[in-house]
Amino acid sequence: MAMSAVARETVFALRRQIAKIEGTLPERLQLPAGAPLDAGVSADVTSNTDLTIVRRGLAAALPDAFLPTGVERLDAALSGGLPKAALSEIHGGQTRDAGAVAGFALSLTSLILKQAHGLPVLWIGTSEIFGEAGFPYARGLHAAFGIEPGQLLFSEAPRLVDALWVAEEAARMTALAAVILEIRGNPQRLDLTATRRLHARAASAGRPVFLLRQAAEPEPTAAPVRLIVASAPAVPRATITGPLAGSIGRPAFTITIGKSRTALPGQFTLEWNPDERVFDERWGEERRSEERRAGRAKNPVAVVSLPRGRKDPAAASGAILAFPAVGSPDAISPTARDQSPPGERAAHFGPRRAG
């Protein structure tokens, strides 16, 4: 009986520790008076600043705890966006998806730097990773993502164990806006314990840590969110007169939710707008047709209205008249056409008479 109670207490302690690591444990938070709470949680107010958050289905979190992508459907599926103080996985199914994974990570970095007030971002990888996928192009960083080359720091480690050590030390630093760790495959050193350390230090520092994984299979980790990224075909550039044939439009990504706090599956096609530095969702052909039909139903009038006080333009005449060619005897010069014949005066110079 005593052994059964001890075992039960041990199981409860392990469950509590796992819930604490995953961020699903109710905690007492010190918040300023009047601070808003998430709609999905309730609170027992013990004083003006001391709140006991009671979890209701999901972990209690403030709205500012997430990095929204700006795509409404994706943010709703992720319960607000990517967590700011946590480890997030970004997977590429194949080695050729490394460019898409890096581009998506740079897009997220651009969103983070809008709120980071000049803090740099550290990108960590092994010599094998950077030798295979290369480094981001410095001039392209500013043109496509608005990132100054001095804001993106790189750490090239000779071995995976060194890269993990650098990532763990950097994850606790509040002087960095974010930490990016890029790893290839499913190495044994990147086990559940290693990801728990990264997640715990990210939560302690209040900074996001993005784990980029090339050609990796999903496996148990402490990251609450896992996104699978692949490149999507670019559409032609949009102009006033319509799509420009033969052109290449904005970069696009296919995002699949592999793991999230809400456990809601979904696949989205996002386009990165380098001018406004935001994500836009690309709709399928069926959804675009629905949007066009809805737009016509809302706006049944013509796009350009007719001038006020004027009738509709007359229909085109069915007969075509041929005028004498310029220089022929029958042609009348513009000067002679505008003048009255000798001995007569124009009608508008005198009163009009009838009868």
Rank of each mutant, 00 (worst) to 15 (best):
D44V: 15
A238H: 06
G295S: 14
P36T: 07
P26N: 04
E9F: 11
P187K: 01
A105K: 03
E182T: 10
G355P: 07
R73K: 10
L31T: 09
A314N: 05
K298L: 11
G150Q: 13
P243K: 10
A43Q: 11
E276Y: 04
G146K: 07
A316G: 07
F323L: 10
S107Y: 00
E89T: 02
G343D: 04
L82P: 04
E290R: 12
S340W: 11
L87R: 01
A294M: 09
V225A: 03
L164I: 02
D312T: 10
L122G: 03
I18W: 03
S247L: 10
P63D: 02
D312Q: 11
R287F: 06
Y137I: 13
A314G: 04
A65Q: 09
A297C: 02
P32Y: 04
G146Y: 02
L111T: 00
E286D: 15
P83I: 01
H91C: 12
A102W: 09
P236Q: 11
E27G: 07
G343S: 04
A116Q: 01
A177E: 00
A200R: 15
P136W: 00
H199G: 02
E217T: 13
A263N: 13
I240G: 09
T95W: 15
G80K: 00
K311Q: 14
A232M: 07
V166D: 09
P236V: 12
R96L: 15
E168G: 01
A294K: 08
D75L: 08
F130P: 09
L152G: 02
D275C: 15
R16A: 14
L122A: 05
R296Q: 13
I147F: 06
R287S: 11
G343V: 10
A144C: 08
T95P: 15
A297K: 11
V326A: 11
T49A: 12
A234T: 14
T269R: 14
A297H: 11
G131R: 06
H142C: 08
F253Y: 14
G309I: 08
P149F: 05
R56S: 13
H117F: 07
I129M: 05
A194E: 03
F323H: 02
S79C: 09
L160K: 08
D312K: 15
R296G: 05
I248K: 13
W283K: 13
A234N: 14
